[in-house]
Every structure is written in C-alpha cells, then in structure tokens.
Design a protein around this nucleic acid. Sequence first.
RNA 1: GGGCGCGUAGCUCAGUGGGAGAGCGCUCGCUUCACACGCGAGAGGUCGCUGGUUCGAAACCAGCCGUGCCCACCA
Length: 851
Amino acid sequence: MDAAQRKMLEETTRYDPAEVEGRVFGEWIEGGYFHPEAEGTPEENFSVAIPPPNVTGALHMGHALNGSMQDALVRMNRMRGKNTLWVLGTDHAGIATQAVVEKGLKAEGKSRHELGREQFVERVWEWKEEYGSRIVEQYKRLGASLDYERERFTLDEGYVKAVYRVFKQLYDKGYIYRDNYMVNWDPGSHSAISDLEVENREVEDTLYSIDYPVEGSDRVLTVATVRPETMLADTAVAVNPDDPRYADLVGQFCVLPLVGRRLPIIADEHVDPEFGTGALKVTPGHDINDFEIGRKHGLEEIGVIGPDGRLTEEAGEFAGMTAAEAGEAVVAALRAEGRLRAEEPYTHSVPFSHRSGERIEPLISLQWFCRMDELAQPAIAAVESDEVRIAPDQWKRVYLDWMREIRPWCVSRQLWWGHRIPVWYCDACEETIVAEQPPERCGACGGELRQEEDVLDTWFSSALWPFATLGWPDDTPELRAFYPTSFLTTAREILFLWVARMVMMGIEFPGAVPFRDVYVHSVIQARDGRRMSKSLGTGIDPLEEIDVHGADALRFGLLAMSSTQDVRFSDAKVEQGRDLANKLWNASRLILLNAAEVEPAPRPVRVEDRWLLSRLERTVSSVTAKLEAYDFAHAVQEAYAFFWRDLCDWYLEIAKPRLYDGEEEVSATLLYALERVLALLHPTMPFVTEEIWSFHPARRGHLAVHPFPAADESLYDEAAEADVEGGIDLTQRLRAWRDLAAVPAASVLAARVEGVDPPEFVARLSRFELGPDGGDPVASIGPVRVLPSEQLDAATVAERLERRREELRSEVERAERKLGNEGFVAKAPAEVVEEERGKLERYRAELAELA
RNA sequence: GGGCGCGUAGCUCAGUGGGAGAGCGCUCGCUUCACACGCGAGAGGUCGCUGGUUCGAAACCAGCCGUGCCCACCA
C-alpha cells in the first residue's frame, strides 16, 4: 500500500459501489480471467451454460437471482483453480423478437407482408445487431463472470448447423413427421404453439343449450356449448354407449339447425351421461376432444374458423365475422328458430396463448411434429438413476410424471424469424427432401424446389444449448473440454419447456446428459406477493437496485432471500447486503491501516485469538458446504453472522488495543482472517471484496483468481470457543445489568471476581474495574461481585436483583418439573437428562448467590 | 379432477422431536479515536384450528380452515 492508497483508505469512510464496480469489472476482463483455454476434461473442469436470455430482453429479477447463483458457484470453482467456463449467449426468441420488430414497422405504417420475408428478416437482424447486446451489458453490471469472448446466438452460423443436423437426424429416425392435426392456434401471433405455451384461465362464459331435431321423428337431442359458433362445424352428436335414454337413437341422424347437415348419432365412452342431457355435439374441426372422437369414428372434419380468427366460407352467411360476432349471430338465429332451449352462466377453464395473451383457437392444420416417447425413455432413466440430480427433491417427481406422459411436440411455427425448417418440396413430383444443406434441384425428377415456409419453435434450438454453444456437431476442443456441463440453475416454469428437452437432446446427440445437477430455484415475487410482471407493472428493476445500492448488495440480498419456497422481494435484505459491503470496507480499513508489516498467518497468543481462528475455519467449512449444496440463503447469512458478530462486534473490539500497539501476532492473525473472509465472500460479493483486496499487503494478483479457502481443521478449538463464548455471555449480562441499574454508559464501576477468572476482555468491554477487595457486593453476576459506588442507586439495583431472582426461580422450577417426570428420566437419552441436571445445578447455585 | 407447497414476533422469512431465531421496524441509551449503511441494551410470538403418536411436538400422523403454484380434453 503506497501513500496515496493509505490516504484514500483513511479518508473514505463509506464504500461507494458506483465508483468501484465499473473499474473493477474492467480489470477482470483485462486479466482474461473469464476466458479459459479449452483444455482438460469435463470431469476436472467446471462449466455452466447460462440459460440464454432473449435478445429482446432486459435484465429482470429472475435473471439477477439466477445469475447471482451461477456466478457464486462459477467464481468459487474458478478460485479453486479449476479451468472454468461460463458460457454466454442469447436466444433469438422467435415470436417475441418478431413482434418487437413488427411493432416498429407498424409505427412506420408498414407491415412485414409489404416488406416480404427476406427484407423483413434482414430488418430483424439489423434490430438484433443494434439492440441485442443490451442484456449482455446488463449481465456485466451484475458482475457475472461469463466468458464474454465466446458469446453465442441461437441463429449464428454454427448454431444453425447444429439445429439442421438435429432436425435431419430426427427426421431420418422417423421421430419428426408432418401431419394434419389439431393444434393450439394463437390468433395473436398467427401461429401454432405447443401445449406448453398454453395457459389455462378460469373464464365466465354462457352455456347454451340447443335442440337438434332427430331426423324423421318428433324427438330432439339437446346439446350444450359455450361456443355456439362452432356448431356450424358439427359433424355428429355423441351419446354414452351405456345411456339407456338414447340407446335406440344410435345409428340414426340429427339435423343440424341453421345448416341442415345430417349428423350421425354415435356412441362414445368419452361422453359423460351426467353432464347436461348426456348428448354431446361433436365438432372435430374445433375442439380437441371432438377431434379425437372424430378420428376414432371417421367423422368429417370441417373448419369454419380460419387462422385469422374469422369465420371461413364454410360458415355460409356467417363468413367474415369474428368468432365472437359469429357466436352472437348464431345465438340470435337459433333463438329466432326456437332452437335455443337455455342459457346459463358457466365458469370453466379456457386456453390462452402464453405468448400473445389471446384465446387459443383449436384448429386442424398441417404442421411438423416430433414424437417424444422414445427420446424420453433414456431421459427418464437418467433422472431415475440420479445421473442427473434434480433439487429440491419434489421436482424430480414432477419431471418424471411429465416425461412419462409426454406427447408429440408441434415444432413448426408460422413465423419468419427463426430457423426455417430444412425441408424442400418438389411440386413436380411431390417429393419431400429433408437436408442440412439446401439442395439444388429435386433428386427424383430434377424439378424446382421450394423450401418449407415455417420456422422451428424457439425451444427446438434452445434444447441444444449446452452442446451447440460448444461447437457441436463439430468435434471442437470446447466440446471435449466442457461437455457435459457441471450444473444448471433454472426457474421451474421452464422445467419441461427447456430442461427436460435438453436432457433428451443431450443424450440423443452428443450422447451424454448435458449436466449433472439441476437446481430449481424459487420465484421472487413482488413486494405485495403478486407475480413480478411487466404487464402488471409489478416488476422491480435490478439495474435500479444496482444503481442505488450496488451490485454486491443486490446479489447478497437476492441470495439471502432465496429459498426453496417462493418469497417476496425484500428491500431490507438488499440493504443488509449494502450494509455488509460498507462494514467490510470499514473493518478492513481498521485492520489495514493499523496492522504491523507482517506476513498474514494464524499466530494465536490469547484465548480470543484461538476462538476467532476456530470460528473462522468452521465458517469457511460450513459456508462452502452450503454453497455446494445450493443453499445460498444460509451460506450468505452465516458468512454475514460470522463477520459481523464474531469478527467485528467481538474480536475487533477485543483486539483493538493490541492492534493499535502494533503487536505483530494480532496483526498477522487479522490479516490472515481478512484474507480468508474476502476470499470466502468473493463469489457472492465480488466487487467490494476485490476492491478491498487491492489494499491487502499479501496481494499478488486479483482476488477473482486467488485460491478459495479450504477449512484448516487444525485450528478448530472447542475449549477456546467455550471460554470466549462464556466471556461474551458474561459481558452481555454485565452490560444489561448496568443498563437496568441506570448507570451512565461512560462510567467505570468497581468489582471483584470470586472463583474462576473470566477472560481479560470481559471487564474492559463491560466497563468494570476489577480490584482485589472492596467490601460487601451489591450484586453478583456470575463470578463478578459488583461493589458499591456513588453511581449506583440502591433501589434500582435491588429491583434488578429481584428480577433476576424471579427469572432463576422459574428456570429452577421448569428444570425440576422436567426432572421430576419419571418418563423423561427413564426414556430420554442420557445426555439430555444430564444436560438438564447441569442446568438445574447452575441455576440453583446462582440463586443461592443472590439470596 | 390430480399433484406439489405454504400458514412461526408489526413486516419479510429461517428453524423437522429435547428450553422459540434472523434481518428490518419499534423503545431506551450512546458525537466510545473502522463504520450512524454505526455501537450498547430492550420490548414483542397460546408457532392457523382440532384430535392423535411420544417421557417430550412449531417440528411426526389424521382431519379441518385459509392461501399459492403446477398438471389435466367435462361439452
């Protein structure tokens, strides 16, 4: 430390994150610490793939929490000397990004259709180049030690190669196929979406009962629906095969009101005879259940609602209306014909698009699907056998339950931004070609080819993330050194959408599970307990928190509030982190400005030194174990407690005089403890610890690559711990006694000791002067006999004494009652009974002293 | 309909069988030569309810009440 540094330390009484963070981050980058060579094996290396944020995204609390957790483990392992890679990249986010750019076009009065596909995609790329790095810059603010030199994008050249390879191979295996099937149509994004992107919400609707006349009879079948417009596409009426009311009608026909179509009356177990009249209108074109019934019975599939959400030509007079308008018109027409039997309010769950928020329109369309059942088998086995461990425990079962009932995945999207499906059609001979490279002409007839218009679901490419980012399908040094990755931390909402699919693809393609550990973290809710969301306006911006309190404060706060259950965002925890950073700074100033010039080393000479070192090493051990077990909240809070209580409140106060005296032993011990505390906290609070480290005499390089401490168990010292904890307890009792006796804080009281001498610091920190004699004590606190003096008011002291006696009497009574219980003495473990007897003795003894 | 979770101090949360904890807030006292983002001392909980298991339950079991999330094709 040179003179300028010393001056700066002396003058700066408050840690200023804004001044430090940018500078320190620059030093890390310059040092190249986050950019490892691709050497070694995955077993000896440490690697993590970041869940790729959307290019359109801004850093939100989920990123900040997840990033804090990953960075903690990444930094800890880097400090341990492991070759460590944290892979950075962004996701092209098909629908979201396309929507952002389309919105921009709309503001210019244009649409993507005017531009045409090629120009539009060009435009999205321009947008990406300009704004896509925003979130990357925001991760830097957090202090994330990602490899910024190996940034990937799900649409970069190499990544596209991986996607096409996977598509081709899955197609060749027969897993990927094209089918005319019912899908979740999202009128908002004008695309099919997968089951996982659908969200069911409770909606109040009207349930309409409609009479369908039976052909050649007076009878009617009354059916019920919440979507009257779909009746235009009905192609049957179904009843339960065991329903005696309708047994005679099966095989006959109804006549569809308004349309006149003949509807066969069929029997199917799906129909619940208890619901309504027990007769079900069957609309295979617009209802997922009816679709299945229809396929089973070979019914006609009519579509009356088009991809734009409007009624098609099939709907006759209703063509062109929106579904909602058509619903009303149909009801009016039915009422006019006297077919409407009833309408009643009805609450049920309805699918909405998670992407656009619009109500899903189930309809039949030609899409690409991927069969998942066979891919799922080894991915199930991997988790069953704990080759991939999922924590907390309950998510393992959630994963397995879902995987065991996995269904085909609709992978095509009617968008322009994304991986255009690598399929080419020949119109001349109807050949379909799937290829990784665009073929010139049709291999069969030499005819012209046109490429499939659809793109792949964004999650199709995300599923390849852990290996595609490392260069797969090429055999790259990165892939050899860093795959499989070490662990994954994630939000539970993408357990199926992303995690499960990565496991399947990892096993199928590179041939190994993509990570060993999956940690599902909790969700940080808004302060009022609602979900943090942009649309609700409940989001809390992590960058603002960083601006106000610093990145370390936010990181500490998020880790401290994280848990296995969902928690509300806590400003107090972030402030606790801020206070800790400041306390670290100031305690370090005390040590660094006053320590003698010595090598940091444990050099205990007194009991409190041995106590401090013992506590330090136990904390190192415990905090490390908790980090490794993903127990971030307890890890940081334990480190906090050790530093604040043991080191600052007690040890520094006890050791100050020796430090000011320039004693070498205490200086060496404190420099040693400081070094270890800084290193221990660096993974969670990297900026402030790195900054303080720059003043430490033992510094040879950055803390980011300083060895992470391993507990030195030879310094554990139970006897010293017991002595000092006893001294602390006594000090607190003496202080409390003074406070209650209303003694001015600054005055020193006379006392003497009877029995065992407490540690030296007790009298000093509680402001007692211990002397050899002194007459009759006015009070006894442990071995301390307080002697009469002018500052003591007899009445107050007596009151205080009586209070203590009361406490002791009730303690004695409690212990006696417990020991008087025969069951307890007979059945409780011996050491528990012994402990209780010990307590009773001590309380009795103290009570006797006070009597 | 099925599954998972939660209900502990005014607030946010720890605590899984042997005497109720943390941070914040609150009260009182400190310009104590690292830090007022500080120091010292306090007040404040029939651990949702009922029953059970146990010598002993905040913790284990059952039921109930309240609350949150996930999955699922009841028109």
